[in-house]
Structures are given as C-alpha cells and as structure tokens.
Simulated assay, not measured.
Amino acid sequence: MLRATRDGDEATPGPGSPSAQRVDLAREVEDYTSRFGPGHGYRQPDRADRRAISEAVGLLLDGHREQAERLLSQRDFTVRTVFDRVSEHRYTEVADRTDDAVTPRGWGRVYIDLDHRPRWSVQVPHPVADHDTEQLGVRVLRDSPGGVLVIAGAHRKAGSGNSADMAHRRDTVFYAICAELVRRGMPGVQLHGMAASSAPGYDVVASTGAGSAGRADGRSLADALRTHGFHVCRAWVRSCPLEGEENVEGRAADAAHVPFLHVEFAPEVRVDGPPAERAATAVSEITRRWATTPVTT
C-alpha cells in the first residue's frame, strides 16, 4: 500500500505496494457511466452499508489499504490501483462489483490520488443527467494533486422518487463518503450542469451552497472563470438560480465550517473541448490551493 505522509504533500510507497493497471481515466469513467439511465440501476443502501463503505474510504485515506479492502469486500466493492496514462498519476479506485450485473445497485465510485496526500474533493452527484459533469470531474482531478473524485453510481432519476438524487438525499453512499471527507476537514467542489435557459446571460452559477466558509474560494473561482472568458452569476452578490442552498453535502460542510463550492455549468461549457478545458483550469486554480492547505484528520 501507499502511506500518506502526515506533514508533506508526497505519498510514499509502503511494503508490498500494489501494481497499477494502466488506463485512460476519462475513458474508464465514460465506460462506467455509459450504462446509466432513468428508471433503472439503483437500490437504496441501508445504514450499515453506508457506514462501512465510508469508513473504508477513510481507511484508504489513512493508508490502511488491507483493512479497507476487507471491509469493502464484505459490501461487494473492489479496490485496485490505476495509472492514468494522460496525467501519469496513480489513483486508488473504489468500485461497486454490481456495476456489471443485470441489476446494479448504483452506489458509486471513488478515485483517490495515491501520489499525494488527499486534501480536497471534487464531487459529481448527477453524472449523465448533468451531461459531461463526470468528465469535467476527471479533468479537475487530473489537474491538481491530492484530490478525491466521488462519482454517483446512477442516473438521478434511476430510483423511486428522488432516492437516487445524491445532492438531496442523506441516505446514500455518495453522501456518506462526502460526509467522511468533511469530517476530515477536506474542502470540496461539487459540479452540476444547468440548462441553457436556467440562467440567461450566464455560463456559470457559482455558489457556496448553504454556508459561507468557502466564500473567499468562491470569489477566487468566479474571478478565474471570468478570466477564462465565462460570464458568472455570483450567488453571494445577487440572487442566482440554482444556488444549491438545499444541497445536503453543502449543508454537511456548512455544519463543520468546511469550504464547499456548488458550481452549475451551462451545456456549452461542459462539452468536450476547449470550453471544458478552460472551465477545469479555472476550478483547478482553487483545488491547487487546497492541495497545499493542511487538513485536520
């Protein structure tokens, strides 16, 4: 396994470090989410499942891979090390074994930077439904050291009612993992996609959700997005649509006084190509700052 250092950014290999499988992380995520759709592919986890999986992610963050693997295996999750050919970074992948089953549970996937101490997260609660936010998340993870990418495991309309809406339900594996990261003081940015008609005249809506701990980071993000040519509605300055005040991960961060950014991108910003690259670069100006900020563990 890899041991994360207590004081520095670099992670050091421990005895018996697992070999890494070479992948293109963007393609891995694309293959993973290509099966998502409304009306199928989600089963609600119970409290024991949520607690065990989030605890195991915490063990991975602390470098206790063997313990984490045992705990995750009991919940039908796998752990492997991947080497992303594009970024040349190593990540621990936490994946649901039922992803390839006829009836997947849809409990999500996590990628943890193995080469640096994890210090921040990028969250994708509505992959596919918010088209290309999952690929934007990969771009942000690649651009900064010390990241944790948390991707929901199903379309937001896959379950009964809003049971698969990860941004508005606390009884999900996605929320449990994000809450574990917040418990460790790790700031997070959550990526969403809005319709072009949702905020006329704006490319991006930037918000700190229910809290204000991320206000300085929000201002910096909005400035960076503007520098990269985007029109930004700043929710702390004026009333904006889709401010995310009811977002449950944001509320958990607010309760712990941990910075949280809720960002809505118009379709033309998310599409693969230069606009998405510029958007990811802007977000990464914040995550790179987070990467050098110690967190409480």
Score class of each variant (00 low, 15 high):
residue 155 H to I: 04
residue 203 D to H: 13
residue 125 P to L: 11
residue 239 S to H: 14
residue 225 L to A: 11
residue 43 R to D: 11
residue 227 T to W: 14
residue 60 L to N: 06
residue 67 Q to H: 12
residue 238 R to F: 11
residue 263 V to G: 00
residue 50 R to C: 00
residue 263 V to D: 00
residue 251 R to P: 01
residue 231 H to E: 15
residue 65 R to G: 03
residue 166 M to W: 01
residue 283 V to I: 15
residue 210 A to H: 14
residue 151 I to H: 07
residue 66 E to F: 04
residue 279 A to M: 11
residue 88 E to G: 06
residue 142 R to N: 10
residue 62 D to Q: 15
residue 172 T to A: 00
residue 273 G to K: 05
residue 291 A to P: 05
residue 227 T to F: 15
residue 41 G to D: 09
residue 174 F to N: 04
residue 20 A to C: 14
residue 236 W to C: 00
residue 112 I to S: 10
residue 41 G to M: 10
residue 135 Q to R: 10
residue 281 T to D: 09
residue 131 H to C: 01
residue 149 L to A: 09
residue 3 R to Y: 09
residue 103 T to R: 08
residue 172 T to E: 02
residue 291 A to G: 14
residue 274 P to Y: 12
residue 210 A to D: 11
residue 181 L to C: 07
residue 77 F to I: 12
residue 79 V to N: 09
residue 11 A to N: 15
residue 200 P to K: 07
residue 137 G to Y: 07
residue 99 D to G: 00
residue 293 T to P: 00
residue 235 A to T: 13
residue 37 G to E: 11
residue 218 G to S: 14
residue 39 G to L: 11
residue 63 G to R: 10
residue 282 A to R: 04
residue 184 R to C: 13
residue 124 V to H: 02
residue 45 P to K: 03
residue 159 G to R: 01
residue 226 R to H: 12
residue 103 T to H: 12
residue 119 R to W: 02
residue 100 D to L: 08
residue 118 P to N: 05
residue 16 G to V: 06
residue 272 D to R: 15
residue 143 D to N: 11
residue 135 Q to A: 03
residue 249 E to F: 07
residue 136 L to S: 03
residue 130 D to Y: 00
residue 256 A to F: 06
residue 54 S to L: 07
residue 39 G to Y: 12
residue 5 T to P: 08
residue 238 R to A: 15
residue 181 L to D: 02
residue 48 A to K: 14
residue 21 Q to Y: 06
residue 260 F to I: 05
residue 15 P to V: 12
residue 124 V to P: 01
residue 293 T to V: 12
residue 237 V to H: 13
residue 141 L to C: 03
residue 76 D to C: 05
residue 261 L to H: 01
residue 136 L to R: 03
residue 157 K to V: 04
residue 271 V to Q: 13
residue 47 R to P: 00
residue 122 V to W: 04
residue 147 G to M: 09
residue 222 A to G: 12
residue 297 T to C: 06
residue 30 E to D: 14
residue 63 G to S: 09
residue 166 M to F: 02
residue 152 A to W: 09
residue 201 G to L: 08
residue 54 S to N: 12
residue 229 G to K: 06
residue 56 A to V: 03
residue 270 R to A: 06
residue 196 A to P: 01
residue 270 R to F: 06
residue 30 E to C: 02
residue 266 A to Q: 01
residue 245 E to P: 01
residue 187 P to R: 07
residue 94 V to S: 04
residue 107 W to K: 04
residue 20 A to W: 05
residue 262 H to G: 00
residue 260 F to M: 06
residue 117 R to S: 07
residue 220 S to T: 13
residue 140 V to M: 06
